[in-house]
Structure formats: C-alpha cells, structure tokens
Design a protein around this nucleic acid. Structure first.
Lengths: 268, 268
DNA sequence: CGTGCTGTTGAGGACGATCAATGACGGTGG
DNA sequence: CCACCGTCATTGATCGTCCTCAACAGCACG
C-alpha cells in the first residue's frame, strides 16, 4: 500500500498544500487503535467528498446546522460546545486530529442538534456525505471501529464527569490537561504545548477564567507547567499525580495486533 | 408474534415468578425506540443464558470483575459507579429497566474495568454470553440499535456534564431528577416516585449529602417535590423549568415508524 | 495607533463542604 | 414485645473554595 496524498484547499490561507493523510497520520493511527484494518483507512479516504480549511474561532459545525454530512478532523484542534442561556459557552470536549467531529449526529439524528463545533486553531476537515456512509459501514471492521469511537467518546465524557464532580480546581485542570496530552499522544502528537487558551480551559472545566488563571499559576509555581504565555507541560508525571490520572481509558488494547504487522510492512 | 414469557429465578427472594419481557416491557420499548425490529427483541431474549435476581445494595458487576458476559437490566434500578481514593462513590449513571448495564465493557474490553454496577433496589438482570453476541450483531438492525444505545449513553453523560459544570445545586439536582423521569418514561414507567435515596443523588450530582438534603427541602417548599420520606415529583413542569431541561436528547425520533406498525399488530 | 483578545492581579461575598448530633423508620433477635 | 441496630433523613455552625466585579498589561492585527 502506498501513502495516500491529497490536495487540500485551505480557504483562509488561500493556498494549496500537498499533505499525507495515510497510515502514519493521526487519522490512520486513530483507526488503527480502534481496531480497523489498513484497507479501511483507504476506503474512508476515498469516500471523502472534499476537504475544508477552517480558521481559528470559526465554526466547523453551527449549532443549528442540519447535517447531511459527517466531518473528520485531520489537522488542528476543535471543541464541541453548547451555548448557555446567558450566552456563555460550555465546552463538552476537545477534538484532536483523527477525531470524528459529529458522529453523534449521524447515529442519533435530530436529538443532539444544539451542539456546535468550533475551531480553536486553524484546522483541516474532511467531509463525507451521509449517503456514502452505508458503503463504509458495510465493512464490519470499519463499522466496529466507529462503534468503538462512540464508546471512547462516552468513556471520555465519563472520566470528565468524575473529575469535574470530584476535586478541587487544581485536580480538574490537571485532569483536563492530562486527557488532552494522552489523546494527542495516541494519534502521534507528542508536543508538550497545548493549543488552546485559558478561557477554553475554563469553559471546559466549568471554572471561571480568573480561577483557571490562578490554578495555572499554581501549576507553574510547582514547575509542572512552563512559565510562558502558552500552556506547556514540562513535568508530565507530576501533572498525572496531581490529577490522579490513569490514561488507560484512552487507549484501546488487544485490538492492535493485525495492524502492527501491516504498518511495519508499509512504513519501514 | 406472541408475548414472550420466561421463568425467572430470583435468588434472594427464593421464589419463581412468571414474568413478561416482551414487546410491551421496558426492554421491548427501549429496543423499539432505538430502531430495532420486533424480531430483534425475540432473538435477544433467546440469547439470554439465565436470569439473576440481585438484592438492593448488592453488586451487579464488581469493579474488578473480568466480564465474559453482558448484562441487561430488566426490572429495578441500578447505578454504574467508580470508587474514589477516599473510599467514596461517584455515580456515573443511573440505570433503568431496559438499559444495558455494561455494553462499554464489551465494546472496549479492559480499559473500563474500574467501573462497577450496584443495585439500588431489588433487580432482575438478564445475562448473555459474549460468544453469543456475534449472532446478535449479525442482524444489522440490532447492531445499529446497540450502536445507538452507546451513543445515547454518551449523550446522557454529555448532558450531565453540562449540568454539573454549570449551575447551582438546585439546578443540578433538578436536572438529575428530570433525566431519570424522562428515561423511565421512555420505557413505559410513569411513576412520579424515584427509587433511590438522597445519598445516591449526592453521589451522582457531586454534592454532599447534607446539601442535597437542603436542596430537596427547597424543592419541597416550592411544591415541586412531595413532602414525604421519599423523592416524589408532584410538579414536573416546574422541575423542568428549574433544571432548564430539554428531554429531546433522551428520545430517538425518526426511527420508530416500522415498529409502530408492528406493535399495533401484536398488541391490539 | 487604536481595538480586541488573552493573561494577570486584587478585594469581597456566596455557595457548598465538613463536622457533629439528633430524629424517624424498619428489621432482627432476645 | 421491646431493645438494639443500621440506614436514611434532618438540622446547626464553621470554614474554605471559587465566583464576581473591576482594573490593567502585553500582544497581534488591521
């Protein structure tokens, strides 16, 4: 199997890039970890109708939008959110490369329409028509992978729920950061700097911006975060200790064997 | 199609009951709302290896248990929970008749092992071996229904997350109660009394028992809850207003047409 | 060179946690 | 039948975390 290259039209930047979305890309690693086969990735990419670039702060999916297409995040960071009556924003989940932005909408149409997806950085998104989904789901391994993706989403919410109900602001923020680090690592992104603002953290953790700021300063004084403008983790172990974070729920074990072999064939 | 009757051995009460788990039962209504076909219910019930009775406060699934079988709640109320390091209990979700207790464990084995399920009332549970699941999933409508069940679980967590992050204790408790009322109604249970204690509400809402008590007393003074020993809702509309509850996420629309026809054939 | 977004700091106040004790109810055994 | 026990509900008092309001600094952008 050869690496798959496509041309991406990035609307804001208004230029054309040749980018690899193949087996070594976040989406490839994601599908792999969900137990899909290498062919599944190829078939998924063939079903892509077009690629979109979205600028930071723009909506990937508007809250009221009636969706007839599914979107997959290929590059950049987004969040799914809900508006509060006071105009505020509750971040339900961060989304990283390889994540399906609105799988929930395909599986349960109409009863989750109030959820929007917003770009936190400049992003690249793949768009697939609903009418092409049947073909994808006829492949048992791919269907199972999508089911697992749903379950993983549920597991992530579940963890967030416990962490949010539970502890102090310090624990909650630490947990949130650990989750993002682990999820990004699972798709091959090892950067220690996290691509979102303190305000985003506040909306996700259910805390005020002010208190998040103070919490982050505490983490900095503990030499867990770097004392810079951005959110950058320097002592991951300590962060996990503070959060009491057990990342096993992020990873899907026992399902990777086949892939590991095949990946070696193609990438080495 | 005839109504399906099975004999249930209830271990604690030590007696044998003839009970109907057919199309009109909570499980039947649940599958219907998930878009399954009538035959799917029959086939699911045929796959049931045995039925178990569990007494209130006992574990349906122990936290460390290595599961090779899936459990479906037929009668009674349970909760899925996680232990906190201090010994406390975080209730992740209440479970009502028709709910799958541990679908997550089947889809994502090994990475959710710390979750237990506890009976809050006396319960009846159906047990299905994992090795019989392949046969069930070979039916596309049933497989889709199980996928939707996963998504519904995620949606419930998502709502809980927003409500927990957001408001005051009053709103959170009100939301939690609304969710349970709506979910029970969706499977044909219209009782206004909810079958769990204030301590359970506290563990689910992430509040202290003391404060839950005071919150419930506030709701009683507003004539939303009945001034009795139990948790009984008398003014549902007002409760939903307090919680800003929109129950649409509980129901799965657009998927019921086939069933509605068939159900009339069998039940009228 | 303003305008907006993000980050930072200070002060006051509210909500909910914690500790502690008591009451009400049902079951169990002497 | 009553004493005892465990569970659940209730009440009071104190304390801490986190919210709110308010102001300001740094930086990117047009």
């Amino acid at each position: 199997m050869q690496l798959i290259s496509v041309y991406v039209y990035v609307s804001r930047m208004e230029k054309v890039l040749g980018v690899d979305w193949g087996a070594g890309s976040p989406l490839g690693l994601k599908l792999k970890s969900l137990g899909a086969e290498v062919d599944d990735l190829e078939i998924l990419l063939q079903a892509v109708k077009y690629y979109v670039g979205v600028a930071a702060h723009d909506n990937v999916i508007r809250e009221a939008e009636a969706g007839e297409q599914m979107k997959v995040l290929l590059a950049g960071t987004t969040c799914s959110y809900k508006r509060k009556e006071d105009g505020g924003r509750t971040i339900l989940s961060f989304q990283h490369p390889g994540d399906f932005c609105d799988l929930h909408r395909y599986v349960l149409p109409d009863n989750e329409s109030a959820i929007g997806v917003q770009a936190l950085t400049d992003c690249t998104v793949a768009v697939i028509d609903y009418r092409d989904m049947d073909g994808l789901l006829s492949r048992p391994t791919l269907a199972a992978a999508l089911w697992r993706a749903s379950m993983l989403e549920a597991a992530i919410y579940r963890e967030r729920l416990t962490s949010t109900s539970r502890g102090t602001a310090l624990e909650r923020v630490a947990h949130l950061l650990c989750e993002q680090l682990a999820r990004r690592e699972a798709v091959g992104i090892h950067a220690s700097r996290l691509p979102f603002s303190q305000a985003d953290v506040a909306d996700a953790a259910g805390l005020s911006v002010v208190h998040v700021n103070r919490t982050i300063q505490t983490l900095r004084s503990l030499n867990v975060l770097k004392a810079s403008h951005a959110i950058e983790v320097v002592d991951r172990k300590q962060l996990m200790r503070i959060a009491e974070f057990d990342g096993r729920y992020i990873n899907v074990p026992k399902l990777v064997s086949k892939w590991t072999v095949r990946i070696k064939e193609t990438r080495d």
